[in-house]
């Protein structure tokens, strides 16, 4: 009975994380900031490892606080360097990302030498291991994801407006700083949650791929969201299912592989329908 419940909770939690990440990825794609998600996923690693080092326990909310602080520092560093140097945006993003990530890996290899490091399973953050999530973690993440989803739902028109045309929204009287701060908070939280499920290296798959596949099928705003949710649901549940039954496969790469396959299928479908339209 309890095993069934934990598996249901696992499915529920992971799909909820994936759907939320898909929707955030939709806004990131509109702003052409898809690689920011990737950068953040790398950059929160030192926050997680340091939070573990100082608290000594693997409580998901403590790690989450560390991750959020690190994510904020990274975003601040990116905007600061963009303002004060003449380096290009992609260089600055890569630079900040790898600085944080190397700090995280240095501390991680230091933590692993200590006796408590091995039980913590912090390396699971790198490739993701769903089996390592406890029921409390999943419950906590589901609640957070629901809060984020409802926040996005309530403010949908405003953040869509900012993603679509930010100068128009500022002209209408909305504060650009406040709303970009809001979006940053949401992105950081979902990235910090997501890397516990799929790992640092492939978090960007959850953000980028569902919406990219959806974009193959439609350009209508509402349909796009619906398709994004569908693809995110499919990828997460199918990936979790396979990774539960063959425990040697890491979950992150599985989900990302499934999402890539759906992207290829949708793209090929689109090409065929276009061909049929043009010549048929």
């Amino acid at each position: 009975m309890s095993a069934d419940f934990s598996i249901v909770l696992l499915f529920f939690g992971v799909t909820l994380i994936s759907v939320t990440a898909g929707i955030i990825g939709y806004f990131n794609l509109l702003q052409k900031k898809s690689l920011i998600g990737d950068a953040l996923a790398h950059a929160v690693l030192p926050g997680i490892v340091l939070a573990f080092l100082f608290s000594g326990v693997r409580e998901s909310w403590i790690l989450l606080i560390g991750a959020i602080i690190a994510g904020f520092l990274a975003l601040t560093a990116i905007s600061f360097l963009l303002k004060h140097t003449k380096l290009k945006q992609d260089s600055v993003i890569a630079l900040v990302m790898i600085t944080f990530f190397s700090l995280g890996l240095t501390v991680l290899s230091y933590v692993q030498l200590k006796p408590l490091g091995n039980q913590a399973g912090l390396t699971d953050f790198l490739f993701g291991k769903i089996a390592a999530l406890s029921q409390n973690d999943l419950f906590f993440f589901s609640v957070l994801c629901s809060i984020i989803l409802s926040a996005v739902f309530v403010t949908f028109k405003i953040i869509f407006g900012f993603a679509f045309d930010s100068s128009f929204m500022r002209f209408k009287g909305f504060s650009g700083n406040t709303w970009s701060f809001f979006m940053n908070v949401i992105t950081i939280i979902i990235v910090s949650i997501g890397i516990q499920a799929v790992g640092v290296v492939l978090m960007s798959a959850l953000l980028i791929l569902p919406v990219t596949s959806a974009k193959q099928l439609t350009n209508n705003r509402n349909k796009l969201i619906i398709w994004t949710v569908c693809f995110a649901l499919f990828g997460a549940s199918f990936g979790t299912f396979i990774s539960l039954y063959s425990s040697q496969l890491p979950t992150g790469p599985l989900i990302s592989m499934i999402l890539c396959t759906t992207l290829f299928i949708t793209a090929v479908l689109k090409r065929f329908t276009l061909l049929a339209k043009n010549y048929g």
Binding site: F127, A205, G252, P253, S256
Partner: peptide, 18 residues
């Protein structure tokens, strides 16, 4: 462009890890 780079990276890297 940014999504294309992200897609190619995640596709090949996850293939490798798998």
């Amino acid at each position: 462009k940014d999504a294309a780079i992200g897609t190619a990276t995640t596709f090949l890297f996850s293939l490798g890890v798998l």
